[in-house]
Nucleic acid binder design. Structure first.
Lengths: 354, 354
DNA sequence: GCACCGCGTTTGAACGTAACAACTCCGTGT
DNA sequence: ACACGGAGTTGTTACGTTCAAACGCGGTGC
């Protein structure tokens, strides 16, 4: 049966999409040869290859993804769960997601995005695993006592995390930003400007990321021999940052610089400084974390720690691809040092700091 | 590591995942019966169903997604292209993406996320279409002379847009925010506060969204019989907003309120007002658009127009699903009126506005 | 008694791809 | 002349699902 002839000229584009068979028939070769063009080009003679490639181009053929996935038992998809948006918005989500997509595509993967469902935090993951819809997951925002890694391990599901494991034994590969180092960079910067008395505004204790950044502050202060004028812990709202800073600045011996665990709190601190008719950067320095758009506003002009999210995306995909290739290999852990973006909130103080 | 043992009994496949066949064999029925449990439960007798369902639960079986897709010729995936992050960050991306995922999942779809590739804006779309990796696309940020809709139509690719069609004939369904109405709401609000002389700071002409919002300003001003003290067009940067506002305020007969096309520009305008030792909200009112985190900062406290992104996600998915169900149907167009979030930047002025 | 019906179920055949083994062809060495 | 090997091709099977058709079966009408 000369299927090839029926197609070749007119019909294949009419409604049905090109397939391995339609290309093979039109090029006068077998399906396997066309398949080899994609999966083992070296097995095909150059002349044949040219001919088939021309036909592939003519029909605009690409291997059907479902069929291929079914055959090779891999979907080529990486799952990533988006967290519900907070009222304040997420300053790093868009950058991370974009870099994740880009990196994934470099390894011929795509990102399957999903949201958490009402019925339990793992339900959506479970669903996708059972359906074999994804080859693995990327997770972010790991928390203390995060249950996900253990769950993945128990099920034998490959994954890679943006965010280290804050408690329990190490499970799986992760990449993280060295928040402590980022905050320490801010402290060193302040020390070099001559500041000798610092305070820190952090998140409530127990948050992994927050505690890490706080530790970075303490250690750097000790290393530099700086006095600590107070460490506050508060939820991540502007108002709370303002309140906490007001208290710190009202002390008998107030700090000349305040290091904050986030831009949100730092902007609150900035306001508290102005509330006392002081000038942020000149009278009291402030630093934040994440280099959000608010920090970049010239009226705020906040020195902040910027996470290299492009690289995070590259790494997290690499870690996942490694795990997919060799499930038995030792999981790698990567810690990236973020960059301090210096702005006016840490100008060189006019007056001499004691 | 004896993975098999972790599963319930040990038999149905120490390693392999559950399949239709494995469930059927264990339950003593044919594959089709198991299939019917999922796709046509009414065709299965209650007793049989109970038995099969028990076995499904025991094995944790879910239909394999690739196999199902291959058979029914639908992937159950919706493609969405993430745009590269701008330095200022995207204020609405995280909210939109999350609502997109949630809405898609309600219709048993998932979102396949991808980034634009270096080789042309349509290359990534083309790739996914040829692979039959997605059933359709959601696009956003439609522009004047957007080539995507026409391309989709030519290829017969279902899609739905967040963002109307700004030029050429209508193609496909869209949902959009009525930017003109949003800006008009700001104008009406200002008029009610007693303002009689307004200015507008917009984007460079030709941008669709920007022109629409500008039109909303003009028309509302006419409707209210308000004087227009100037209309500026500038790129979306804080500094440019500040500069444009400075010029407007330096006029002989300056506006008492400035409506801005974005929060970014509005914050710049806010600064320009303070530069003249005036108080935003009391002396000169300002409004923005998008209700970004910067706008919500109490030091800025910007009245702004908030887009109902949750609803946008719901609608755009509905439109796409409609297009998938009935490709011939008339595409629907939805225009949502956004909500004005009133803050201190439009406080009631102390002095009487002439 | 037999054709017919509807219901619940089973059977065989796709969907489009890739792995595998078997085969053809051609040049080479003895 | 003929076995040999390697490059390249072909037929067959399987991946897991759904669709269409067919089946068995008890009940109904004539």
């Amino acid at each position: 049966m000369r299927r090839g002839f029926e197609r070749s000229k007119a019909d294949f584009g009419a409604d049905r999409a090109a397939t391995l068979a339609s290309v093979a028939a039109a090029a006068g070769v077998s399906r396997q040869t066309v398949s080899n063009i994609f999966n083992a080009p070296h097995k095909v003679q150059l002349a044949t290859r040219r001919r088939v490639e021309a036909e592939i181009a003519r029909q605009g053929y690409r291997p059907n993804r479902s069929a291929r996935s079914l055959r090779i038992q891999r979907s080529g998809l990486v799952g990533y769960c988006v967290k519900p948006p907070s009222p304040a918005g997420d300053p790093i989500m868009d950058r991370f997601v974009h870099s994740l997509c880009q990196a994934a595509e470099r390894d011929a993967y795509h990102v399957l995005l999903f949201a958490a469902t009402p019925d339990g935090p793992m339900a959506a993951y479970e669903h996708l695993v059972a359906q074999q819809a994804v080859d693995g997951f990327v997770i972010s925002d790991t928390t203390v006592d995060d249950a996900r890694q253990e769950w993945f391990q128990r099920r034998g599901v490959p994954f890679a995390a943006f965010g280290r494991r804050w408690s329990g034994p190490e499970i799986g590969a992760w990449i993280d930003i060295d928040g402590a180092a980022g905050v320490a960079a801010a402290v060193h910067h302040l020390a070099e400007l001559g500041h000798r008395r610092l305070a820190f505004i952090g998140w409530p204790e127990g948050s992994g990321v927050g505690d890490d950044r706080c530790r970075g502050f303490r250690e750097a202060a000790v290393e530099r021999g700086l006095a600590v004028a107070g460490i506050a812990h508060t939820v991540n709202h502007y108002d709370d940052g303002r309140r906490a800073a007001a208290e710190l600045l009202a002390q008998a011996d107030p700090p000349t610089a305040v290091v904050c665990v986030s831009d949100e709190l730092a902007v609150g601190c900035d306001t508290a400084i102005r509330d006392r008719d002081l000038v942020p950067g000149r009278d009291v320095a402030v630093t934040g974390f994440d280099d959000t758009s608010s920090a970049a506003l010239p009226t705020v002009s906040l020195t902040s720690v910027r996470q290299p999210l492009q690289e995070v995306g590259d790494h997290v995909v690499r870690l996942l691809v490694d795990a997919l290739r060799d499930p038995g290999a030792d999981p790698e852990h990567v810690l990236l040092v973020p960059e301090l973006v210096v702005r006016h909130s840490t100008d060189h103080p006019d007056r001499t700091v004691p």
